[in-house]
Amino acid sequence: MRNILLSAVLCGMLAACASTGPAHKAAVVDKSLNAPSAGAAQAQGVKNQGASGNPLTNPNSILSQRSIYFDYNSDAIKNRYRPLIEAHAKYLMDHSNASVVLQGNTDERGSAEYNLALGERRATSVKNVMTLLGVPASQISTVSFGAEKPKALCHNESCWKQNRRVDIVYQGEQGD
């Protein structure tokens, strides 16, 4: 079941990536050549573009959307998140010095340890889509917070659904 969904997501994304990838990539290579170090370039790439319209933080850009939400006890990525993951995968392929941490989270119910593993599986599920799209694995790391860092604090479904989530956090940004 997971594999079928994954394939469907991938087909859509690969097509989209192929058309726009190279142009963006060239722009970033130029930037990093001018920068004093790779590390500084990375920080600049993520942080300092904000003033001149960093797409990662521009609310009008899909790249400002960072959360993928899941059903209860599921790591299946819903169709509605295809464009979002697709856009970030494209950005990562275009910006080879950018990297992301995929932070997996779950709702509070049940076992803390099972939730920790489930959060890891959700993050890995997003990572798998990105790597199969062509993002080098070296640009993606995963971490699970399980149920330990809830965004919404109440004890019912209205909060739980906000906490079953993977956040895409770029290096240099503050994560949760």
Partner: peptide, 9 residues
């Protein structure tokens, strides 16, 4: 202990 170093937990 439970580790995810080799993939799944």
């Amino acid at each position: 202990v439970v580790l995810s170093k080799d993939g799944n937990s």
